[in-house]
Amino acid sequence: MVKILLGLIVLINLGFLFYFVRDLLRHRAEVMTEPAATWALPFSSFFIFLLSTFGISDFAISTALCPKAKWVSIKKLPGTLNTQCVIPVAAMALSDITAITVDIKTLAICIIAAVIGAYIGPRFVVKLPADTIKKFVMAGLLIAALMILAGKFNWIPANGTATSLSGWKLIMTAILLFVYGALNNIGIGSYALTMATVYAMGLNPPADFPIMMGAATFSVSTSSIQFVKLADYSRKITLFTSTFGVLGAVFFVKSLDTSMLQWLVIIVLLYSAISMALSLRQKEEA
């Protein structure tokens, strides 16, 4: 089953690469003229996905960084958050999924639900006004900060023993994974939300990982293909993160103490959310 899952991950990501490379070739004259700083992207890409391996959301860090640095507009931010993480997330999944300790039916239903949500989402996101997207992005920043806090203070229970779900628990989990897959499209990462959900449903911690990684890599690949087709993303940022983000995703530093770094990230996320809220308020008053 591990080989089948990893094989499917490779296939869906090859599908994304086909559409992405084709789009790059069609717009090769425009890619390097996009506003993101060429000299900074390799470093930011590496460290964003290095931090992601320690559970710090790449969606959250990129959301705090890219608009502030004026690397991408709010309108194209959701698509960029999805497309930039496809290859690094696939690399993490291929590196880290070494066993499947969850019932295959539960795993399949969770992944399919997330993929359906991810497939539907982009068609609605591209039609949203920039201010509406900004409000969703603010919510994503706050959720990311709260989930880091929840992890630090052990507010998320992780003492379940089940390896499968059935009945209302499976239905509720599938509905929530569908929602998380859709929320990915507006910049709200699904890692921590998926983890909290399966823990709350009583699954044991090792069972969470293939669900979390499988749902994430299949859903972001699916949604990103749509964003590429709709040309609603930053090609330059996606190109650099697909190259240098992979290095961060597979570069493990087990001795790194991230406790203080997590507090710093929480402060940055809250500051970014408050800044966006103030700018929206000033705009409304004007």
Rank of each mutant, 00 (worst) to 15 (best):
A216I: 09
L264F: 14
W168Y: 11
L94A: 09
F218H: 02
L14S: 13
N184Y: 01
E284H: 11
F218A: 08
T33C: 00
V220Y: 01
I104D: 11
Q282R: 13
L51N: 08
K236L: 10
L149R: 11
D232F: 08
L230P: 00
L24V: 15
A215V: 10
A64P: 05
L128I: 05
V220N: 02
I171Y: 12
I97E: 04
Q262A: 14
R22T: 12
V137D: 02
I237K: 00
L247E: 03
V246E: 10
T161I: 14
A99R: 15
V179K: 04
S57H: 06
A64V: 07
F47Q: 02
A231S: 15
F124A: 11
M32W: 15
T243L: 15
P35Q: 08
V31R: 07
F16G: 10
P78Y: 04
L141G: 03
V86G: 05
R22C: 01
P67H: 03
S259D: 13
L203Q: 05
A29R: 13
P205C: 13
V2R: 14
L65M: 14
M195S: 13
G187P: 04
I267R: 01
G245P: 07
I188W: 07
L165E: 13
I104C: 03
S255K: 10
D232V: 00
G245D: 11
F136A: 09
C85Y: 00
P157D: 12
P88G: 10
D23N: 11
I133N: 05
K169V: 02
L183T: 14
A130P: 00
I266W: 01
L256Q: 04
I148L: 15
A182M: 13
W71N: 03
D208L: 12
V86L: 05
P206V: 09
L51A: 15
G202P: 06
F178P: 10
I143Y: 03
D232W: 03
I74T: 12
F209W: 07
F240D: 04
L165V: 13
I225R: 11
W39S: 12
L203H: 06
W263C: 00
D58G: 14
A93Q: 08
P35R: 09
C66I: 10
